[in-house]
Nucleic acid binder design. Structure first.
Lengths: 222, 222
DNA sequence: GCAAATTTTAAGAATGTTCTAAACCACTTT
DNA sequence: AAAGTGGTTTAGAACATTCTTAAAATTTGC
């Protein structure tokens, strides 16, 4: 998650940057209004933190300009101003929230998280080593690379990951993934395991899906 | 737009109710925690205004209970409490905003509008690659060229772009764009996707709308 | 009420997925 | 070391989904 801070007071900016980086956000800082707008326009941030009073271009101007082109990215104002009129004005200009200085970092952090909630979503994301599987989105990533899996491949991987660390017997796999409840005598599972290992580029070192001879398979983070 | 106020101080409740009704919201009031929760659960409100301190069930408890069943509806807390911990606590429990008494009605109103913005479908310009979609004037451009889309084509593209980066399952599409909530067995989506790709002149390089076989479609900037 | 445009249905073509079968490989047992 | 057991890999046949087109049904505008 990437955040842009536009704040002229170097101390506050540094404090925020450090705090947010500790929360594992990627943070850019602009100390001046125009610079901030250019950065906001040329990069894809997930959230903007704007100071109200800025040299060059005011925070509210940045917000207005920015909103003309981009509706989605949430904007939070930081400000010492404490009059109602200006709060209202800020929210009307397209901001999503407004926090008055002095504020506590924890409160700011929670307000940021509230704004990012739709993005981070409470998707069911499963992990196996550096592989992530998102059931809501039906997407699989290895590192940053997206890996396209077919329905069955996806279902099999999901089953293995859901049972991570447990041995999955072939009969359980064929029941859960293929919905076959009688005697099974095909080699489908093997074929699909092979396809998964290939697509996920599993090697001897990254042997996330291991074979248990005579029993089945097991998914492990190693 | 329907709002539920849960507030035990009759004066404040009446003041809010009147003010919001003048802004043409439909307003219900509960003066007690349990009553508030029951109302919230049994009706479809667009927003909840909860007092922190309540007889019966506290605002935070209402929020928690309510969030268990209903993810979307925004919740704003009204409170005299002014400690950081409790603000943070409130936001963590699933609230979307938090306003401290005494507040000015105008500020509350703007914060309510901010929360309702996604619902009221604030007019906006969305982007997908070099395609822009403007919901206000119902126009679509690719580069500088204006591209005429019919209602349905536009609605479908808007849905895909609003969910940019997420896989859109066919059932979700047919529900949101066609408003069909039962089993679907037609090929309309395919036909419209085809029309979009044709009108937008999408090629293999500019494959902004991708097919996820067996699942649906996904819009990507690539 | 008619003409034009839009939306939906339907059907064959194109493409992608799933599964079977058979050859190949690796480890175990005798 | 040979035979046996079980896993891996490959190719392609059978199957399913999606694309494309055209025509039918519906809606919209005059």
């Amino acid at each position: 998650m990437r955040i842009l801070i536009v704040e002229d007071e170097a101390g506050i900016a540094a404090f925020l940057k450090q705090g947010l980086e500790e929360e594992s956000f990627a943070v850019d800082v602009a100390s001046e209004g125009k610079e901030g707008l250019v950065l906001a326009q040329s990069n894809e941030y997930d959230l903007l933190l704007l100071d109200w009073m800025l040299p060059g271009l005011s925070g509210i101007e940045i917000c207005r300009q920015f909103r003309k082109e981009n509706q989605q990215t949430p904007v939070i104002f930081l400000t010492a101003k404490d009059t109602v009129d200006e709060t209202v004005f800020g929210l009307q200009s397209g901001a999503n929230d407004y926090i008055k200085k002095p504020f506590h970092f924890d409160e700011l952090l929670e307000r940021i998280k509230v704004q990012l909630r739709p993005k981070t979503g409470e998707h069911a994301v499963f992990k196996l080593g550096d592989i992530t599987l998102n059931t809501e989105n039906h997407q699989v990533h290895k590192g940053n690379e997206e890996i396209y899996l077919t329905q069955k491949e996806f279902a099999l991987l999901e089953f293995l990951i859901r049972n991570k660390g447990k041995v999955c017997r072939r009969t359980r796999i064929i029941e859960s993934v293929w919905d076959i409840h009688f005697e099974y005598n095909t080699g489908v599972i093997d074929v699909y395991i092979n396809a998964l290992r290939k697509k996920l580029k599993l090697s001897d070192e990254e042997n996330y899906i291991q074979t248990i001879r005579g029993v089945g398979y097991i998914a492990k983070d190693i």
